[in-house]
């Protein structure tokens, strides 16, 4: 019963979403279902916060590897939540509520929460994202090793696309003679890049996309018909 009821609810809502795609009459029902999901997800967020604290407190208590990071996580979490809830540094936005310091938005420019986001969180995220450039280089180095014919073709194609994407006309103008009229020499790498992207890449991508769409249909049907219940823990 504990598995049957969730499967029935999931299937009913799934069928509703499917039919509502073609029936405007059912759109309000669909919106209601989406609102329910938002409510459930919000409650689950609180559960997530509790889980975060217990998980890291346990790590600290057991002195697991990297427990110091758990301490930093907990402190950062507590400080951010406290500053956000107490609206530290927030000033009243409305003239009517000048006597109420908390009447402003917690993300207000100049507030402590805004400062944490702007000067701590944002730079850290940017740093992580910037590391991606180095990872791309190391992955490309491994992927483009000319081990066999296919790898050589891949390498050549990648080189053409790479050069074509980096304003090849300006680069090749350094190597080729400039025409008498002063215009940039026309070396067709950019055109070749466009041809590769529009013809080969698009064809390959569309083939994968058709497969994905059909896979989504089959998976959705498996879930709607209750054939696959492993997402709810199976039948055990």
């Amino acid at each position: 019963m504990s598995k049957t009821i969730p499967v029935v609810i999931a299937s009913a809502v799934g069928y509703l979403m499917f039919v509502a795609c073609f029936s405007p009459y059912l759109l309000p029902w669909r919106q209601t279902a989406e609102e329910w999901y938002t409510v459930v997800a919000t409650i689950a967020m609180l559960y997530g916060g509790v889980n975060l604290c217990t998980h890291h407190l346990k790590k600290i208590s057991d002195r697991e590897a990297g427990w110091g990071f758990s301490g930093v996580t907990l402190i950062a979490f507590a400080v951010t939540v406290a500053i956000g809830l107490l609206k530290v540094g927030v000033v009243p936005e409305s003239v009517k509520h000048l006597d109420r310091a908390w009447s402003g938005q917690f993300q207000q420019e100049g507030s402590a929460f805004w400062w944490i986001y702007q000067y701590l969180f944002s730079p850290i995220v940017s740093t992580m994202f910037a590391m991606l450039a180095f990872y791309v280089a190391s992955a490309a180095f491994r992927a483009f090793r000319a081990k066999n014919v296919e790898a050589v073709l891949l390498l050549l194609t990648a080189l053409i696309v790479l050069v074509g994407q980096t304003k090849d006309r300006e680069i090749t103008s350094l190597l080729l003679a400039v025409p008498a009229d002063g215009s940039l020499p026309n070396f067709p790498i950019a055109d070749l890049t466009e041809f590769i992207r529009k013809t080969f890449v698009t064809a390959g991508q569309r083939a994968i996309m058709i497969g994905i769409a059909l896979g989504v249909v089959a998976t959705s049907l498996r879930l709607l018909m209750g054939l696959d219940r492993s997402y709810l823990g199976g039948d055990e």
Partner: peptide
């Protein structure tokens, strides 16, 4: 697992006839 293979994985790993039949339907 490229695209559809991700969705086929569950059926493939379960080995259940009904789920494998769905792969043929695709």
């Amino acid at each position: 697992l490229i695209g559809e293979e991700l969705f086929a994985a569950s059926a493939y790993l379960s080995g259940e006839p009904a789920q494998l039949g769905m792969l043929k339907g695709q």
